[in-house]
């Protein structure tokens, strides 16, 4: 009886600790800046809580046997010869099965909600075939939606706003307006990844990939290349500025009057500096960086960012 009470108390303690850990998990993420972020964070919090319970449970058993099942130094006896228990085996096959399948069902549901659909069409013979996405962005799409063409290069990001004939190396997005990106790459694989949005999509050369989201928080965030793309992969980052639709509108308007000028490319700058330096240390072969794209607004990539 007393053992039952103690065991229940211990399990209760583990449940509390797991719940606490699940809540704590939200703090490990960057700020939530898109409509996808809360869904991802909730799911992660849930799995952190379940995972914490499993981990602490296993640890408790290990701690118990380490404390109470140690052999004395000169004890040469064997333990009780328990060879197995079919009922227990069934229990610990079925319970994990139920847990992971429950997680899978929840995740598939979240997946549907996110609607982060993969690329739609292959591209062959240089002819781009576009397809519509059905994400939260696209479903809300109407006159208020925005299209941005994203070109990932070795190593720079270029953003084109086809409606306004504007291009930039800093991505500006209006708050709470669904946006659809068309991701293309002329050279190698890249990854379009904005941690604050919790979204990521590889950019595959030869394909045009449609990808939607809705920013939900104003601020300055980082866009990072997430699929290894060569020498300056780490420096292939850009800033994403989410601002009110009015501010975005005036930015776009002002940008359209700017003359074309070289955009930001850390890679091109560094390569130029290295070329001027006398060769020191080991340096291995790389393709040269593409020249910085000619854009209306270079923007900045050194201002403080929120995430």
């Amino acid at each position: 009886m007393i053992r039952f009470v103690l065991l229940s108390a211990w399990i209760g303690l583990l449940v509390v600790a797991s719940h606490w850990m699940g809540q704590e998990a939200y703090r490990w993420f960057p700020v939530q800046a898109s409509n996808a972020a809360p869904l991802v964070d909730d799911l992660f919090s849930l799995e952190t809580a379940i995972g914490t319970f499993v981990f602490l449970g296993v640890l408790s058993v290990l701690l118990w046997v380490l404390l109470f099942n140690r052999a004395e130094k000169y004890d040469q006896e064997d333990g009780p010869p328990m060879e197995g228990n079919t009922r227990l085996e069934i229990v610990w096959t079925v319970i994990p099965l139920v847990i992971v399948m429950a997680i899978a069902v929840v995740s598939i549901r979240v997946n549907r909600e996110l609607g982060v659909l993969g690329p739609m069409e292959h591209v062959h013979g240089g002819e781009l075939i576009e397809a519509m996405d059905h994400g939260p962005g696209a479903s809300a799409a109407g006159s208020g939606s925005l299209q941005v063409d994203v070109i990932a290069r070795q190593w720079s990001w270029e953003f084109r706003y086809p409606g306004a004939q504007v291009s930039a190396t800093e991505l500006h997005l209006p708050l709470d307006v669904p946006v659809t990106f068309k991701l293309t790459s002329p050279d190698v694989l890249h990854g379009f990844y904005v941690p604050a949005f919790r979204l990521k999509q590889d950019v595959v050369p030869g394909r045009a990939i449609d990808f939607s989201l809705t920013p939900t928080r104003s601020g300055r965030y980082r866009l990072r290349d997430s699929q290894f793309s060569g020498a300056w992969f780490a420096a292939n980052q850009a800033d994403v500025v989410v601002e009110s639709p009015e501010a975005f509108g005036s930015w776009l308007e002002a940008a359209s009057h700017q003359p074309l000028q070289p955009g930001l490319s850390v890679a091109a700058d560094e390569a130029e500096r290295l070329a001027r330096q006398p060769a020191g240390g080991i340096r291995w072969a790389t393709v040269p960086p593409a020249p910085p794209p000619l854009v209306n607004v270079p923007g900045s990539n050194s201002l403080p960012h929120d995430a």
Partner: peptide, 18 residues
């Protein structure tokens, strides 16, 4: 446990290649 998290598509989309 982190493997199960990585298997979960929405979480993996965020942490893949990180």
């Amino acid at each position: 446990i982190t493997g199960i998290m990585l298997a979960t598509v929405p979480i993996d989309i965020h942490v893949n290649n990180t």
